[in-house]
Every structure is written in C-alpha cells, then in structure tokens.
C-alpha cells in the first residue's frame, strides 16, 4: 500500500481540499475536552489531543436518532402510520480517530450487521465513511489497547493511518478506499528518507510502553455460570454508584432504548443510548426485574464485555482498551482489575 508525507504547515490545505469533496469530522476542542464534530473550517481541527472524552461512536450510532415520524391528525389517512425520515448519507471522512476507537466499530459491526437483520442507519453510515486514523505515539497511563486486541498503530479498522513524525505526518493507505482518497490528494510529498523507519520505531516504543496488562485466556476455559456465580462480584460492585458514565463513554456500549415523542399532532420514534447500569433497563411491564440489584447490573456489564461477547463470537472482547471508563469512573473502578479477577481468581470454594 502506498505512503505519502504531509508537512504540518500543508495540512490545513489538505483538510480544506477534503472538505470540498466530503463532510469532514475531526477532534475539536470544545471547552475543556476534545470531541468529534463536523469541521466548519480547517483551523478547527486539533490533532494535538490525547483522545476525546466521549468516544466517536455517536458518528455512527447517535446519542438520539430519529427513526420514524408520524402524524396523529384526526382524519388524516396516514394517521398512526410510521414513515421513514430522510438521512444524510453523503460521503464523509473521520479524521484523527484513534486506532482503538476505529477497532470498536468493527466489534460493534457484529452486533449491528447480522445475517438476519441489518441496522440500516449503522450500515449506511459505515458505508459512507472513510476512517483516517491517527496513531498513538504516547499512550495514556489508562490505555490498554494492546491487551484488548488492538494497538496504538492498529490499522485493522482504518482506511488510512496518520503517524505524527514531529514536522509532518506519514500517511499510509490501508484499504482500497484509503488508497483512493490518498490518490485524489494534491499536496502530498514523496516520503522523506527514514520516515518509514521512524514510524516503525514509534510504534515499537508505544507498544512497549503499553505492555500486556492482563491475559483473558483463562476466562475462555471457565463456564459462563461459573464466572457468573463467582464471589468477587461482591467486591467489584461495592463502590459502584450505577451512574452509567462508563457505558456512556464506552465505544463498544451500543445498547439503546426506543421511545416515542409527541408534540401536538406530530410525533417521532427515536432511539437513544441506554445503559445496563440502570434498573429500568430490564424492568418488566408486570413488575418483575431480573437485574434488580446493583451487583447484577455491574456483573452484567463486565460479563458482557469480557465473557459473553467473546463466547458469542468466538473472537475478541467487547472492549478496545481506550481507558475512558477507567479515567472517568467517579469511584475508580478499573476494568483491567476486573479482567484480572475474572482470569486469575480461584472461584472454587477454598
């Protein structure tokens, strides 16, 4: 696959070029935190960021999505019949996404795209998007992508990888889509000597910095029921306040609710992010609640990520190691510790 080089002073020009043909989304500093948003001008793009506070999942699975609209007008022959709403699927580029966050979309694809049912909004946004990732030269202390099946230079879910080499960026095409995008770019330079080697060295040093922080192989050997009944959940859940921050920030937490909203005689069916941390998530109409206690909800989240998902798809875990939940948990629950407990703790009665 081809490579090209863009010096930092030429980047705004390249971004503007892309903005002429695509809708370009990138990290923008909003208040204290970075966030992925549509670029109004190239100067908004800020690639000098660690990562965004919210994961970029909203680009494909918005926090609230209008699914259908309807009228309730008396006498209208269409009253009560749901209609699809127009969506903007013009081609777009997500610029500067971290490799772990892009990998999350691949894990989520397995949920949104199955042989039997395809989520139309997810599929069409995925198809119309080119992912241009930014390699992590300097991971955070809360990062653990290398333990979660991804890595700081992971190209498995990207179309193009950008590597920050100080004075400029090395662009490596990964897919045919990425190759095409780079082919259309004017302003790229031939790759200066030693740049490829420099990028390889950065990759090696970032990976070494991350190390392997847990090994979930033993979890595969244990049965769901055995882990479910393990005593350590009591300790894990002790400090949790079920605030749902972890699920909100997580790039692989895709659960959603569907609600109808009505204003006068018009209404919409919308879907909104939901969280397994909330008791209402599983409350039956008749009053029964299978996950009526905090322990059960905390256990559900970790078990889904680290045991149910891997067992269901026989590959991967539903976590990419971005570390957002570790950074922002108000009571310092660390999924790495939970993973180690699940892998190492002896659940047999001593």
């Amino acid at each position: 696959m081809s490579e090209t080089y863009v010096s930092k002073e030429k980047l705004p020009g390249i971004v503007e070029q892309l903005m002429g043909t695509h809708r370009v989304f990138g990290p923008i500093l909003k208040g204290q935190y970075h966030q992925f948003a549509l670029l109004e001008e190239s100067a908004d793009l800020d690639l000098a960021f660690r990562n965004t506070r919210l994961s970029p999942k909203a680009l494909f699975h918005p926090h609230s999505e209008r699914m259908f609209e309807f009228t309730l007008e008396k006498g209208n022959p269409d009253a009560g019949i749901l209609k699809e709403v127009p969506k903007d699927y013009r081609s777009r580029i997500v610029l500067g996404i971290r490799p772990c966050d892009a990998y999350a979309f691949k894990l989520d694809d397995r949920n949104f795209i199955t042989d039997q049912f395809k989520d139309p909004w997810w599929v069409q946004r995925r198809e119309s998007t080119t992912l241009v990732g930014l390699a992590c030269n300097d991971p955070c202390s809360t990062c653990f992508c290398t333990s979660a099946g991804s890595g700081p230079f992971d190209t498995s879910s990207l179309d193009v990888l950008l590597v920050d080499l100080g004075e400029g960026y090395l662009l490596q095409a990964v897919t045919h889509k990425g190759e095409q995008l780079m082919g259309d770019l004017a302003g790229g330079e031939s790759v200066p000597e030693h740049c490829t080697e420099q990028a390889a060295a950065l990759k090696q040093s970032a990976e070494a910095q991350l190390g392997i922080q847990f090994n979930l192989d033993p979890v595969k050997q244990k049965s769901m029921v055995e882990l479910f009944d393990a005593p350590f959940w009591e300790d894990v859940q002790f400090s949790c306040i079920n605030c749902g921050t972890c699920t909100f920030l997580c790039p692989t937490c895709w659960c959603f609710d569907i609600q109808d909203e009505v204003y006068q005689s018009r209404g919409e069916r919308i879907r909104i992010w939901d969280s397994c941390m909330f008791p209402l998530f599983t409350l039956h109409g008749a009053g029964h609640n299978p996950r009526d206690q905090k322990l059960k909800r905390v256990r559900q989240r970790f078990m889904h990520k680290l045991k149910y998902y891997p067992d269901k798809y026989a590959d991967g875990i539903a976590c990419v190691g971005c570390g957002r939940c570790v950074q922002h948990c108000p009571v310092n629950i660390d999924i790495r510790q939970v993973a180690r407990l699940m892998a190492e703790s002896c659940v047999c009665p001593v």
């Binding site: 949920n111 949104f112 199955t114 039997q116 049912f117 989520d119 769901m224 479910f228 895709w254 659960c255 959603f256 609710d257 569907i258 879907r271 939901d274 397994c276 998530f281 599983t282 409350l283 039956h284 109409g285 299978p290 559900q300 078990m303 889904h304 149910y308 067992d311 269901k312």
Partner: peptide, 19 residues
C-alpha cells in the same frame, strides 16, 4: 422466556442473557 425488549432483532442489547 420473557424479557423486557425493545428492538426485537438482537441489536439493542436489552434482553441479553449470557451469549
């Protein structure tokens, strides 16, 4: 089995039990 459900097509995650 009965569970609280929303999407009904195995996507919204609500009625998950194990795998």
């Amino acid at each position: 089995l009965e569970m609280r459900m929303k999407c009904g097509i195995g996507i919204c995650g609500r009625c998950n039990i194990g795998t």
